[in-house]
Simulated assay, not measured.
Amino acid sequence: MQFHFDESAPLYQQIAAQLEEMIFSGAFPEGSQVPSTTQLSTELHINPATVLKGMNVLVDKDLIEKRRGRGMFVTAGAQEKIMQTRKESFYKDYVKSLVLEAHKLGITKQHLLELIERGENDGTVNN
Results as ranks from 00 to 15, higher is better:
Gly54Ile: 03
Pro10Tyr: 08
Ala17Gln: 03
Ile116Pro: 05
Ser36Phe: 02
Leu113Val: 13
Arg68His: 12
Gln110Val: 14
Asn127Gln: 13
Gln13Arg: 14
Glu30Arg: 09
Gln13Glu: 15
Leu113Asp: 06
Leu105Trp: 09
Tyr12Cys: 02
Met22Arg: 08
Thr75Arg: 07
Glu21Lys: 12
Glu117Arg: 11
Val51His: 02
Leu115Lys: 07
Met22Tyr: 02
Leu40Ala: 00
Glu80Gly: 01
Arg68Asn: 10
Gln39Tyr: 09
Pro10Val: 06
Val34Tyr: 00
Ile64Trp: 03
Ile107Arg: 07
Arg67Leu: 11
Ile64Gln: 00
Ala102Trp: 01
Gly26Ile: 09
Glu114His: 12
Gln18Arg: 00
Gly77Ile: 10
Arg70Glu: 14
Met22Trp: 01
Thr42Lys: 13
Lys66Gln: 05
His4Cys: 08
Ala102Asp: 05
Ser89His: 10
Gly77Ser: 10
His103Tyr: 11
Thr50Ile: 13
Gln110Asn: 11
Asp93Pro: 02
His103Glu: 15
Lys87Met: 14
Leu112Phe: 09
Ile116Gln: 10
Glu30His: 09
Gly54Val: 01
Glu120Phe: 15
Leu112Glu: 06
Gln110Glu: 15
Leu19Val: 13
Thr37Gly: 01
Leu40Pro: 00
Phe24His: 06
Pro35Lys: 08
Asp122His: 14
Gln14Trp: 03
Thr124Met: 11
Lys53Tyr: 08
Glu114Phe: 10
Gln39Glu: 11
Val57Gln: 13
Met55Gln: 12
Glu7Leu: 11
Ala76Lys: 06
Met1Arg: 03
Val125Asp: 08
Ala102Val: 04
Arg67Cys: 08
Gly77Glu: 13
Asp93Ile: 03
Gln39Lys: 14
Leu98Met: 15
Val51Trp: 03
Gln33Lys: 11
Arg68Ile: 12
Glu65Lys: 10
Ser32Asn: 13
Tyr94Gly: 06
Phe28Met: 03
Asp93Cys: 06
His103Val: 10
Gly54Gln: 03
Pro29Leu: 10
Leu112Trp: 09
Gly106Asp: 10
Asp6Val: 06
Glu65Asn: 04
Ile23Gln: 02
Phe73Ile: 07
Thr75Leu: 04
Gly119Ser: 08
Thr85Cys: 04
Asn121Gln: 15
Ser32Val: 13
Ala9Phe: 07
Val95Cys: 09
Arg118Thr: 12
Arg118Ile: 07
Tyr94Gln: 10
Thr108Cys: 01
Lys81Tyr: 05
Arg86Glu: 15
Thr85Asp: 14
Gln110Pro: 01
